[in-house]
Design a protein around this nucleic acid. Structure first.
Lengths: 225, 225
DNA sequence: CGCCGCCTTAACGCCTTCTTAACGCCTCAT
DNA sequence: ATGAGGCGTTAAGAAGGCGTTAAGGCGGCG
């Protein structure tokens, strides 16, 4: 569910966008003036902005320039003007796209997707953190108290799987299947060895685990202090 | 100085683009067919691609789909077709923009800037610097303590790819795909040799790497001191 | 044609990682 | 109390990954 802010002074355009975007998993917010639009950006924190150029109170390019002083939210310009100079100026001022009215709704949606798609990598949080233990799934790195821990592939796989299950109990069979695939007839013995060596690396006192907890007869879970 | 690959079968379009983009700090490469284009992406490693839809040997959307299997290089579609369905399909298939021929050159340049601007920040930096190691992506040159290092094309490709991934672990398979393309059945053995000779050039003590770190069982990463 | 630089392949040895087996501890049920 | 089974630990062996070197092939260039 993405939030989109429509800044346009024509009520019928806002209505059209509210309806058509509302059907497509967007939460739509409206602002009739640039001034109210700027305020709305602050309070609403939209994921993307649709900005009309013909606003009564402020030139669209001025509004965009001001916005770009402090925000990198994607902005798509909607305008009746089709002059190349306008388009170039707005795109260089930081707009992400420029559509000429009357625009086609499906195309607008596709172009909104493009603008949002390029944003993903920075937005995505892919770290597990719990006490002083930290797992960065992107970097594939593990650290305790800021100190990096070296794990073997299997050890990392176990820890990552338990972390992804967020403290819930994971049965042995599920872990075995996760590590060696559903077909392999995996030995529980091998798993026990990996658990042991993993504990040596992430537990203060490996003989009394504080994180990697055994649930007797069931499996294991990652306890978050 | 950015590299742009123009894939279009009409010589006059290629000529027009080569001239007008050449004036604007672009190094222009041309390919008349989708097939040659895909090969050129491999060898040239452009920063952005302009793709015509009306290619003789392959449908443009097919070409884009294949490219997107392994690459995220920005692609702008150039086409005579103006049907909404086409535009939406291409944008959803991973295109970054869509311009209808005849297009306006200034607008194209502005839209190319937008596409390049949206890249991850670390991707569009033209130099990588870390300790005494310095990589200039524009010049394709590498230096340590101000001393220039001579690297072979493959060595440079490995180092540059690791640097662009900013210290994160890069899987062997990803590195192999990056170097020899997605189709090639690449030999890990060859990669190991290149890594070895690369280390001889950039490491103080190649037998105990301080920069180009091996992550056993996974891949490599460039460690920034 | 011969030289040179680059890439690939193969061989070998080292080292990490995984597996297996043995043993001891604990818990629980009989 | 005692035996059985689950679990943790350790050590040893096997397997495979990785680094290195040398040799051969390919293409560019004088």
């Amino acid at each position: 569910m993405k939030r989109v802010l429509v800044i346009d002074d024509e009520p019928q355009i806002r209505r059209l966008l509210t309806i058509s975007l509302g059907k497509k998993d967007y939460e739509v917010f409206e602002a009739p003036t640039a001034f109210e639009g700027m305020q709305a950006v602050q309070s609403i924190r939209p994921d993307i902005i649709l900005l009309d150029l013909g606003l009564p109170d402020m030139d669209g390019s001025r509004a965009l320039a001001e916005l770009r002083l402090w925000s990198t939210i994607p902005v798509i310009i909607l305008s009746v003007r089709d002059a190349e100079a306008d388009i170039v100026a707005l795109l260089n001022a930081g707009a992400d796209d420029y559509l000429t009215k009357p625009f086609r709704v499906e195309e607008l949606l596709a172009r909104m997707n493009v603008a949002l798609r390029r944003l993903r990598p920075d937005m995505r949080e892919s770290v597990y953190e719990c006490g002083d233990l930290r797992i960065d799934f992107d970097e594939r790195s593990v650290s305790i108290e800021e100190r990096a821990i070296r794990l073997t592939p299997t050890e990392y796989a176990i820890l990552a799987f338990l972390a992804r299950n967020g403290g819930k109990i994971v049965t042995q069979t599920r872990l075995l299947r996760e590590l060696w695939g559903p077909l392999a007839d995996a030995e529980p013995g091998s798993l026990r060895v990996h658990i042991s060596s993993l504990r040596k690396k992430i537990e203060r006192n490996p003989s009394q685990p504080g994180r990697l907890i055994t649930e007797p007869g069931i499996g294991y879970r990652l306890y978050c202090k």
